[in-house]
Amino acid sequence: MTFLGLPDRAWFWFAAAFYLAGLVLGTAAVLRDRRHSHFAIYGVLALGFLGQTIGLYLRGRATRGCPIGNLFEIFQFTAWSSTVLYLVVGTAFRVSLLGYFSSCLSAFLTIVSLGMPAWDPARPAAALGGMPWVAFHAALAVFSYGVFALLALTSVMYLLQTYSLKHKRLRGLFSFLPSILDLDHISLRLLIAGIVLMSWALGIGAVHWLHDLSSVDTPKLLTAFVWFAYGGVLALRLLGRLVSQRLAWACVALFMMALVCLGPVNASRHPVAPVAPASLKS
């Protein structure tokens, strides 16, 4: 299946190129000690998002379901989720450098997944069982990963700003970072939003699982574990027991853990040896 004669992976490369362009633009501005153009970063992210949307659409049509059936698709979908969040709500936060960091993350997720053909094995159509509610549950869960990805970014920015102010290094990249309190407020909102989305996803999934307990497999348990861990972090934050740098480190570490958990998810869905990328067979 193609669009304008190009298969899905070509569109994913197209998206990766624009995310990378955002990274290069932002880095060049920082190295020149100049404030980067929000308009330019927003533009390249929007173009990358467009390419990725087309790629995911083609993949979804080919597999007749939400394109989150293997690790490659989950990475692409997570990058897409964090980008759409930035494009829709990121500008409302009015946080400088968030667009730059978003392009870094999206470039990383898309390029790494594109560089790993083994993550994109051929899979049967409708890998999520062809049930719309199950697909919706899975899409919501992966979308919440996008929110947590953005949370990891704001946490990294928080840690960088704290380091800058503690060590009195205020030039270069540090001079453009948002205030510590703004980052803390945004991180808290993202943490709550991510947990709400994941709770919603798990709630929908639970309705299905309760009817079929045997369907509770490793991916679902891992998702529940990630939800529980983030919930714990939120509870401790609201109680004032986990704040400032420790909270930021916890959010970064949890996102890393969530990404690592995607490995078993992929393995459980594709226990056989990987084969050629899907696009080569389309």
Partner: peptide
């Protein structure tokens, strides 16, 4: 200016 970097 430093205070604004901390508190906005």
């Amino acid at each position: 200016e430093l205070a604004q970097k901390i508190f906005g």
